[in-house]
């Protein structure tokens, strides 16, 4: 017989995965809107973010109830703690998708700068990290979570390259500094989303193995 608590945990995981789906969509719409110069797609991000915020609050409330009523231990405790943290990361990703949407709208209203090859690469990489971090949680796959961690450096490098590319363009077009800033900020938001995906991957490893690998630290090896 499945215990009530196990059913509640399963529902909670489903809630988180549903919210993660909305976060992926918000990030995807912001990026696609920028690529296709589609203002309708970009503005859809704001409504999705409202949904994400509601889901985040509901998740928090459920977590507090489960902690208070069931006082979970061991793997159950690790899962619940990780979900609380992942919830925060996902909610922040939603905010960053909104930031990308704002900067994209402003950028698209001005004169476009030269096509930046690294921006689409970075977008794809960050979307991949988000997707795989969630997949590693759903499939309890430590190896997949570890692969997400390995991708973080690549995203950081891409952000630096974009910043340098923009600086190079602005040398010949100094009056387009605002346009350049929007692109740098978009790269910055993407990089932060990658950081949150990394946090989620670290939480997945903690749930599975009990190892705390944040900041290069291994607190406990099973």
């Amino acid at each position: 017989m499945e215990r009530h608590f196990e059913a509640s945990l399963r529902d909670l995981k489903n809630q988180l995965v549903l919210m993660a789906g909305h976060v992926e969509r918000a990030i995807g719409n912001a990026i696609e809107g920028l690529k296709k110069k589609d203002f309708t797609l970009i503005s859809s991000v704001y409504a999705i973010e409202d949904t994400i915020n509601q889901e985040s609050m509901t998740l928090d409330e459920t977590c507090v109830k489960l902690l208070a009523l069931h006082q979970p231990l061991a793997a159950d405790l690790r899962l619940l703690i990780a979900i609380i943290k992942m919830n925060t990361d996902l909610e922040r990703m939603g905010d960053l998708a909104v930031n990308i949407a704002h900067d994209s709208e402003d950028y698209l209203q001005g004169t476009p700068l030269k096509q930046l090859v690294n921006l689409p690469i970075m977008c794809a990489e960050v979307q991949g990290m988000v997707r795989e971090s969630i997949n590693s949680f759903v499939s309890k796959n430590e190896k997949l979570a570890d692969e997400v961690l390995q991708r973080d450096d690549l995203v950081d490098n891409l952000k630096s390259k974009i910043k340098n590319d923009v600086a190079e363009v602005l040398k010949t077009r100094p009056h387009d500094v605002n346009q350049g800033l929007h692109l740098i900020l978009i790269a910055r938001h993407l990089e932060r989303i990658g950081d949150h995906a990394t946090n989620i991957a670290e939480d997945v490893i903690y749930v599975i193995s009990g190892k705390d690998i944040r900041h290069g630290h291994v607190a406990r090896t099973k």
């Binding site: 231990l73 061991a74 099973k222």
Partner: peptide
Amino acid sequence: SELFTSPK
């Protein structure tokens, strides 16, 4: 603290 968070 270990036994109740990450039992072996």
